[in-house]
Amino acid sequence: MQEILQHLAERWIAYKIRLIEYVGLTNDAMHIHMSLLLLFVSAILFRRRPDSLWCWLVVFLAELFNEYADLSGAAPDEAGLDSAMHDIYNTMFWPTIIVILGRFLFPRRLKVTRPAPDPDASSDLADQPFKESATV
């Protein structure tokens, strides 16, 4: 399992370096953009709101894997614990704000439960008393 993770980490770091060079953003900006992209893509895939803890967890697990790859020595200048904590903060800041504010500003609607229809009741309202309409 360790060999598989190490191999994935090396491939991920090589891809990440090429992506940063191609896009032209800083490493910090990439962490922020990718965290938001992951949050919204996971919301679409899970069919949940972006303030779902499941979506937040997807971003967090992806970031933990990214930091594992960085700390394993595959990434240049990213192998320190201070750098890892900085990256985790950068990555998780906006998804955490979205989860917290989304819960307070946009609460979930409560499902209205309606009583189950009586199977013995008639659908033509014949069992209800007749009410005359108001005359004009």
Rank of each mutant, 00 (worst) to 15 (best):
T26H: 10
T26I: 07
N27P: 00
N27D: 15
N27W: 11
D28P: 15
D28V: 14
A29Y: 12
M30Q: 07
H31I: 12
H31V: 13
I32T: 07
I32G: 09
I32D: 08
I32F: 05
M34Y: 10
S35E: 04
S35N: 06
S35C: 12
S35P: 00
L36Q: 02
L37T: 14
L37C: 10
L37D: 07
L38H: 03
L39P: 15
F40Q: 01
F40S: 06
V41S: 13
S42A: 05
A43P: 03
A43M: 04
A43I: 03
L45K: 01
L45Y: 00
L45D: 01
L45V: 08
L45W: 05
F46D: 04
F46S: 09
F46K: 03
R47F: 09
R47T: 12
R47I: 07
R47E: 09
R48K: 09
R48G: 00
R48D: 03
P50H: 08
P50R: 02
S52T: 12
S52A: 10
L53N: 03
C55F: 00
C55G: 04
W56L: 12
W56K: 04
W56I: 10
L57K: 01
V58G: 12
V58S: 11
V59F: 02
F60P: 09
L61H: 11
A62F: 09
A62E: 08
E63R: 01
E63C: 12
E63M: 12
E63K: 01
L64Q: 11
F65T: 11
F65D: 12
N66F: 05
E67F: 00
E67M: 09
Y68M: 05
Y68S: 02
Y68P: 05
A69N: 10
A69K: 09
A69Y: 05
A69L: 04
D70L: 02
D70N: 12
L71G: 08
S72W: 00
S72I: 01
S72H: 05
S72F: 00
S72K: 00
G73R: 06
G73K: 10
G73A: 13
A74C: 08
A74R: 11
A74G: 01
A75N: 13
A75C: 08
D77V: 00
E78C: 14
E78V: 11
E78M: 14
G80E: 09
D82K: 09
D82Q: 10
S83L: 13
S83I: 11
S83V: 14
A84T: 14
A84N: 07
A84D: 05
A84I: 10
M85E: 11
H86D: 15
H86T: 14
D87E: 06
D87L: 01
D87H: 02
I88K: 01
I88E: 10
Y89R: 14
Y89H: 13
Y89T: 14
Y89N: 08
Y89E: 13
N90K: 06
T91C: 14
T91M: 15
T91S: 15
M92S: 07
M92H: 03
M92V: 10
F93S: 04
P95C: 03
P95A: 02
T96S: 13
I97K: 13
I97P: 13
I97C: 11
I97V: 15
I98Q: 06
I98E: 03
I98A: 04
V99I: 08
V99Q: 07
